[in-house]
Amino acid sequence: MSKYLLNKFLYTIDRDAELTERYRDDPAGTVAWWEAEEANRILNCVVAERSTWLSFTDEERRALADHDHVALFEMGAHPFLTLTLWIAMFERDFDEPLAMQLDYAAKLAHLGLPYPDIST
């Protein structure tokens, strides 16, 4: 399991409006594409600079494909990265102000201190 790769996925998807919509509409396809094409790209480097060893576990792929922010947090994904991405993808589905954020928090309410380690 790679918290770095989970966080890199969330960060890069959230920074591109087209990828955000693609991930909302086709999560499994976006995860598969990103893992094959982008996971080993080194951030802030030219396209030719790549590593070769990073990949998601089956558990990570499933949580990403299911938009399961609770499982992602339990695996060590940073909650601010999931929250900002979830706001971009799902806030429009809620009628009341802050309803999406309250729903997000309610699904994490069962977790107590100490929280899962989110360091990478």
Rank of each mutant, 00 (worst) to 15 (best):
M1E: 12
L19F: 04
E49W: 13
A105Q: 09
K8L: 15
E38D: 04
V47I: 09
T57Y: 08
V31G: 06
R22C: 08
N40I: 01
P27K: 14
A28T: 12
D93M: 05
A77E: 02
T20I: 10
V70T: 11
Y23W: 08
F56M: 10
R50Y: 04
D93N: 12
E74W: 00
L54M: 14
D68F: 06
L5V: 10
Y115I: 07
R61T: 10
M100W: 06
W86S: 12
L5R: 11
G112A: 13
D66N: 14
M89K: 10
E35R: 05
E18V: 14
K3D: 08
T57C: 08
A65M: 05
L85I: 07
H110I: 10
R22S: 11
L19H: 01
L113T: 10
F9A: 00
W53E: 15
F56Q: 07
A28M: 09
D14C: 08
S2W: 06
E74D: 11
Y23A: 06
E60F: 02
Y23G: 00
S51R: 15
H110P: 06
A63P: 00
I42G: 00
Y4H: 10
R92G: 00
E49M: 15
L6E: 03
F73W: 13
R41V: 07
E60H: 02
K8E: 10
M89P: 01
W33A: 11
A106H: 10
L102Y: 09
A17E: 15
A88H: 12
F9T: 05
S55I: 02
L108V: 01
L72R: 08
Y23V: 05
L10S: 00
E21T: 13
S51V: 11
D68N: 14
H69T: 09
G112D: 15
I13E: 00
A71P: 08
R61D: 04
G76M: 00
R41I: 03
V47P: 11
Y104A: 02
D25F: 07
R24E: 02
T120G: 08
A63L: 05
A106I: 03
V70M: 08
L85A: 06
F73R: 09
L111N: 00
D103Y: 09
H67S: 11
A65C: 04
T30C: 11
P114M: 08
R22N: 11
T30V: 05
W33D: 12
L5I: 09
T120P: 03
E91C: 07
A105L: 15
H67L: 13
N7C: 10
